[in-house]
Design a protein around this nucleic acid. Sequence first.
DNA 1: TCCAAAGTGATTAAATTAAATCATTTTAAT
DNA 2: ATTAAAATGATTTAATTTAATCACTTTGGA
Lengths: 253, 253
Amino acid sequence: MGKYNRLDQIMDYLKLHNLVTVEELVIATEASPATIRRDLIKLDQHGVISRTHGGVTLNRFIPNQPTTSEKIHKNFNEKQLIADVAAKLIKPGDSIALDAGTTTLEIAKRITQMPVRVITSDLHIALFLSEFKQIEVTIIGGKIDDSSQSCIGEHGRSLLLQINPDISFISCNSWSLSKGVTAPTEDKALIKAGFAEKADKVVLVADSSKYNSYSLFTSIPLNRFTDIITDNHLDTETLQVLQNQIFKLHIAS
Amino acid sequence: MGKYNRLDQIMDYLKLHNLVTVEELVIATEASPATIRRDLIKLDQHGVISRTHGGVTLNRFIPNQPTTSEKIHKNFNEKQLIADVAAKLIKPGDSIALDAGTTTLEIAKRITQMPVRVITSDLHIALFLSEFKQIEVTIIGGKIDDSSQSCIGEHGRSLLLQINPDISFISCNSWSLSKGVTAPTEDKALIKAGFAEKADKVVLVADSSKYNSYSLFTSIPLNRFTDIITDNHLDTETLQVLQNQIFKLHIAS
DNA sequence: TCCAAAGTGATTAAATTAAATCATTTTAAT
DNA sequence: ATTAAAATGATTTAATTTAATCACTTTGGA
């Protein structure tokens, strides 16, 4: 029954089974334990699974304690620092909106003990935060984009236009002074723009490696933001230019 | 720092960390390994975690391979059988709606290789199915009910009223011939009713242990269903009565 | 066709974890 | 305050898993 390669078989098995032993995978793939372990080392290095002595699990929405994969996730530390700064902007009782992404997920991890209301497009964030009873979670709904596992489309956008959060945290894969925040698809651009529409504070959380790149669709011009949080790897001239804009620039370090 | 009881501490740690070792929990709780293991046995028996030799993880949306907890989840086998029958009603290319619940999640697990479109209110189902690229997933959106981790409220209901699925699968905690499907809150009742509104086939999936009980809000009268799938533990008189109704009664066994 | 390289499987030794047992401490009720 | 019961910790033993090594097979060029 070797229908496709073993790594995919392992991944599919993990998608269905949560916590798994090597022995189970041996049976499922009909390979030897040694081979399975070698495969698992690879998958671990790619950062898609977590291992302990007798267990393997898919890395779902919770970025894990340091494993081999830590270095793989680029800008991991930068994102942590940015999230630290972002979380400090939040006060108990606030209504906050969280765009989809790993940086915003890091923000979510920092507010689990704070009574806040959260609106998000991200399935991971929604499911994660819904486990903490101090937090009221709303997901915007719509079609799920499977690369980001978040909601896109008009249905969710209409919800965003109905609400007035205290702070909106928006992440991105590309931003620049001239083109603003851009996104690869119109759907995603519209959702991001929706997040920026009604919020009191509109905060961009984006590490410096994404600066000065852009995608097809402009979503939000930079002057729409009230705050931008980034790391300390921007060059000095860029820094000076950005500091003279109307938004407040936070350098996380 | 023993702020609260150790079981909650362990749970909170698991919520943040995905895959965890006993040693980590020893450090986090400042208890002995033996105590941690005893706690884990309890949590396992409650069915909220999974264990392997060196690993512990929260049971998120994937009901696991047989563990100690298997017997705890009552009617587990019945739900499996019901889901088997339900899945057979689905054809490739169908648009299906899945209410929140463990039985509907079991249905989801059976269609991962089938190209279908799925609308659901359940975060678990949405996140789970979004990992399979043959499947297009839509979540209805709205406030998250933290007991079921699914969407409730008007926003999601409005989406349900806009779509016309081929089949709607609805689960429940209580159903009877006289009162129909009932729910404990108005919000939940409205969502369930939304699922039944526009679908071509409206299918109730409910094990027999829930028959002849009811909650405060009536959601859907039984004669609204085109099919009812239940297990073979109904008594013969009930069976006869139900077989004479307009819906088609499927007995899973 | 042949060969080198990569991948795989089997075996054994080392490391890690779990279970069982018993002593000690804490808890709760009288 | 006393005592029984429950919970916890420590220790030893047993079970399981991993890593390391080597032999074998498959694969893809030359």
